[in-house]
Simulated scan of single mutants.
Amino acid sequence: MPKKGNRKRLKFRPGDVCSESVTVADYANADPAVVKSGRLKKAVANAIEKEVKLLCGLEASTGPVQEVLSSAESVCVSGGERDSSEEVEPEEGDGDPKNTRKKKTKRRKESIDCQDGDDYPIDIWLVLSGYIRPEDVCKFALICRNAWTVTCTAAFWTRLYRRHYSLDAELPVRLQPDSLSSMRCLRACVIRSLFHLYEPFSARISTCPPLPDATPNTLLNARCMLFWVKEVSGSRPENLWQFNFKFEMHAPKSKSNVDRSLQLPKRYRDVHTNPDSNCYLLQVNTLHFIYIPHVIMGMTLSLMAINVSTDMRHHRVRLQFQDSPLLRGQRRRAEPGLQVALDPVHSVRLMDWWHPQYPTSA
């Protein structure tokens, strides 16, 4: 084992290295006799890292020149401090390396202790919530506990509705301002109205294809709560038959380690009430009427497949129902259960509870 005193000192400093002096040979053809580990020397690596960070800061910045230079200086200072702390090597009889490690740990603890933020009152978060876009509500609620509490209030959802409401908007009666005077189901009604009023949300609905690209597996192990059939007029000469299946997903069990302080306040529970939560609507339009037994209501969907019809011009939807749900970790049952085949199929659509065409229960 070589002694520490025989360690060779580096003949150059990080400040002496620039981009012109770094070659491919420093990486690929490094002489193992010079560097026993076969890797790039630490001083060279620190200097390259420092210069790359400086160049990235200058290229990524788009502000004025003074701001660019100030940011570059801060990067250099922080990089220099880190490099100097990492390059400390004890000389012969100069000290114990354990003391250096203790100093590094102490600096890290001090930097962590200095990162404590300020706790702003909830009134400030309520003012800031007036400038939040609908698609950023979740990000805003994840900032802190007070921001999340603001998203639970009726004032937040009422202001969000008024901000995007217009008199010439075509809204159903249940989403008109007079119908939103009650606090019950306020959040669900505002979210549904945004898919009529807010253009980015309405664009999602208009761009949905009549047939999904792949078979949706969201409904697997869901319970069929309701089923009805009606005749609708379409673009074809004959009318279409619309089969509607309302499924309810099993609510996930709440974990015991969840922070109880983040439970919904009691006075705002009516605001977040939603009878259609965890519900989906499967809408299948067929060219002919097909008899389906009403016994499927209350059964669990175990299989859904969308294939090509026998005439090779349309599609075929096959649904398989079981009496009880399949628990996690269990294999699929061998018995076929009750199968429903819809053929030929014109279109298939899976709707969430916030879809404009979803029939609400409230």
Rank of each mutant, 00 (worst) to 15 (best):
C56W: 04
S74Q: 13
L40C: 09
T62L: 02
E51N: 10
S71V: 06
V34F: 00
G57K: 01
I48R: 04
A45T: 08
V75E: 10
S37F: 05
V75I: 15
V52N: 03
E49Y: 03
E49F: 04
E73R: 15
V34G: 00
G38Q: 08
S71Y: 05
A28E: 14
G63P: 00
S70Q: 11
N46V: 10
K50N: 07
C56R: 05
A30R: 07
G57C: 11
L54M: 08
P32V: 11
V44S: 04
D26F: 02
T62K: 03
G63C: 01
E73Y: 15
T62S: 13
D31Q: 04
S74K: 10
K53F: 01
Q66I: 08
A28G: 02
A43K: 04
T62I: 02
D26W: 03
A45Q: 10
E67Q: 09
A47P: 11
S70P: 00
G57R: 00
S37M: 06
P32E: 13
K42V: 08
A47S: 13
A47H: 10
R39Y: 14
N29D: 15
L40T: 12
R39N: 12
L55C: 07
S74N: 12
V65R: 05
R39E: 14
A30D: 05
A43V: 13
L55G: 07
L69Y: 07
E49W: 03
V65D: 09
S37P: 01
P64T: 13
A28W: 12
A28Q: 09
S71R: 12
P32K: 06
V44N: 01
Y27L: 15
I48M: 09
V52H: 03
A60N: 08
G63N: 01
V35C: 09
A33S: 13
V65E: 13
A28H: 06
E51M: 14
D31R: 03
S61G: 09
N29E: 15
L58M: 06
E51A: 11
A30W: 02
E73G: 09
K36W: 04
D26I: 04
K42T: 11
D31N: 14
A72P: 02
L58D: 08
E59N: 06
S74D: 13
A28I: 13
K53T: 01
P64D: 14
P64G: 14
L58H: 06
S37D: 15
E59P: 00
R39S: 13
Q66L: 10
G63I: 00
K50A: 07
N29V: 05
N46Q: 10
P32C: 12
S61R: 00
E73K: 15
L54A: 11
V68Y: 00
A45M: 11
N46F: 12
A47K: 08
K50D: 05
V75H: 01
I48S: 05
L54I: 10
R39W: 13
E59L: 06
L55T: 08
C56D: 07
K53D: 08
L55Q: 11
V68L: 11
S70V: 04
Y27E: 09
V34K: 01
P64Q: 08
G38D: 07
A43F: 03
K50R: 09
E67M: 04
